[in-house]
């Protein structure tokens, strides 16, 4: 079990990986950095999983629905032993298993391919129904972006999860109020979020998603909840810990320059967990 301090160190490691990778190989740094604490808690404390046996049937599953933040997931997977850390450098390169958006059939341990938004919760629901048929109480954690819930399919799936009482599902909504064209509330307002999920029959929790203590507590509460799926509305900050990235829509999909990367790494600070990726070739 990893405590709050340890998870914070791992989250810093993930953030450093995200900066290094996107700076060299392109990608989407902002949301990945903002979700680092949540993903660190999942892969290093919460999930019952076996990196050496990714198809273990009774594993807890993490379904990344907003596939563009996959650098954080790849980092957590590499750092927890799914594949060699050096392979991270192949991200977005020809013949890589680490596609620009996750490709399940390429990389064992990915629960689904993702990228086109709004599909993850439906897939998570199917996995939860499968668990029910197998009498397994393994959990399914599904992460979506906030802009993503503008997709109608999310609400179809929200109905399905509540209707079928899928209490093994935790939907984490990373609410950073940023999407490509600007602030979510300006592009297409999604608020009030918690009230919407409550009205759909969900157990809802509202937390600061960059505060590890609150993330841990929310997952504890989810695990105790029965009869309804749980929505964790996690306020996050895009680019959290990198001053020039925080709250800025441009960092949804912009790769930091070498200079910006150096500054970002300085601001994130060193991590006691693992070591920096060795700049390749």
């Amino acid at each position: 079990m990893a405590n709050t301090r340890e998870i914070n160190e791992i989250a810093k490691r993930i953030k450093r990986d995200v900066i290094q990778l996107t700076s060299k190989n392109t990608g989407h740094p902002g949301g990945a950095i903002g979700a680092a604490e949540i993903i660190a808690e999942l892969y290093f404390n919460r999930l019952h999983h076996r990196p050496s046996q990714p198809d273990w049937e009774d594993r807890d599953r993490f379904v990344l629905s907003n596939g563009h933040i996959c650098t954080a997931l790849y980092s957590a997977m590499a750092r927890s032993g799914y594949f060699p850390i050096e392979e991270l450098w192949t991200f977005r390169k020809l013949n890589s298993r680490l596609q620009g958006h996750p490709s399940r059939h390429d990389l064992p341990g990915l629960e689904t391919s993702a990228g086109p938004l709004g599909q993850g919760l439906s897939i998570a629901n199917g996995m939860a129904l499968a668990n029910r048929l197998r009498d397994s109480d393994a959990k399914i954690y599904c992460l979506v972006g906030d802009g993503e819930i503008q997709e109608g399919q999310v609400w179809e799936a929200a109905m399905t999860a509540a209707h079928h009482h899928l209490d093994q599902i935790a939907l984490i909504i990373s609410w950073n109020d940023i999407q490509i064209d600007g602030h979510v509330k300006d592009v297409m307002n999604i608020e009030p979020i918690a009230e919407k999920f409550k009205a759909f029959g969900w157990h809802t929790l509202e937390i600061d998603g960059n505060e590890v203590n609150q993330v841990k507590k929310a997952f504890d509460q989810f695990e105790q909840n029965t009869g309804t799926p749980t929505a964790i509305i996690a306020k996050t900050v895009i680019g959290k810990g990198v001053s020039f990235m925080e709250h800025e829509a441009i960092w949804h999909g912009k790769a930091p320059s070498e200079e910006e990367a150096t500054r970002a790494l300085d601001e994130i600070g060193t991590s006691s967990f693992g070591s920096d990726l060795v700049t390749e070739r």
Partner: peptide, 13 residues
């Protein structure tokens, strides 16, 4: 759309 996703989740499990 949700049905196809749900079916896929069942298949992946």
């Amino acid at each position: 759309q949700d049905m196809i996703g749900t079916a896929s989740g069942l298949a992946l499990a």
